[in-house]
Simulated assay, not measured.
Amino acid sequence: MSVLTAIGSILSGLTKPLSDAYSAYTARKAAKDTAEAKIKMAKQAGDFNIQLSDAEWEAISKRNESGTWKDEYVTLIITSPFVLLFLSAVASAWTGDPRFIVSANAGIEALKGLGVDLGDLMAVVVFAAVGLKSIGAIKK
């Protein structure tokens, strides 16, 4: 019975993130549809004062940002230390020279000296990329 419990626990652990992501997707889609309906009704009525919830406002603002590079730029900047570390490890292995790794580690230590937690920063970027607004909801 404990093997079945372990398998069930593993399966629920694997499906919960997918379920949560789908729930977040449907909530964002519903907010976008509601906001667009409110805007359409306001235009027809000639009303310039529209009350939108935070989710509706976010959905509309994301629609307007679809052609910008802002999110991609932030993602590139935040992930660059990890790319640098990977490339320096490859270069170090290729050439047999450990200075590449030492230099990359020195750069990452300098970032840590600024008080930047690269793990939390990476989590924020990944969650933002998939459209999750709060890390607190994920860490529960």
Rank of each mutant, 00 (worst) to 15 (best):
I7C: 03
L18T: 13
S134M: 10
T26K: 12
E72I: 11
S88D: 14
F48C: 10
E56R: 05
A21M: 12
T68C: 04
D97C: 05
G96N: 08
K38D: 11
T5N: 09
S61G: 02
D20N: 14
K38V: 10
I135V: 10
L114A: 02
A123R: 04
D117G: 13
A106S: 13
V130D: 03
I50V: 15
A45I: 06
I135R: 08
L118R: 04
K43M: 13
F82P: 00
P17I: 00
F82T: 05
K29M: 06
G136E: 15
R99P: 03
M41S: 10
K133V: 00
A31H: 13
D71M: 09
K62I: 05
A93K: 13
K38S: 11
K32R: 11
G46F: 01
Q44K: 10
S88A: 15
I10L: 15
R63I: 00
Q44P: 01
I77V: 15
A24H: 07
S66F: 02
Q44L: 15
T95V: 02
L121I: 05
V126E: 05
A6P: 01
G67S: 11
G131C: 04
D47T: 15
T95F: 12
F82H: 08
L4S: 14
E36H: 03
V74T: 09
W57A: 15
Y22K: 14
E109V: 13
W94F: 13
K140D: 14
P81W: 08
L111W: 00
T34L: 07
S23P: 00
F86P: 00
S23H: 08
G131A: 06
G67F: 05
I7P: 00
D117E: 11
I77H: 09
M1L: 14
K29P: 03
A37Q: 13
A42P: 08
A89T: 00
G8P: 01
A35L: 05
M41A: 11
K40W: 01
S61I: 01
S88I: 02
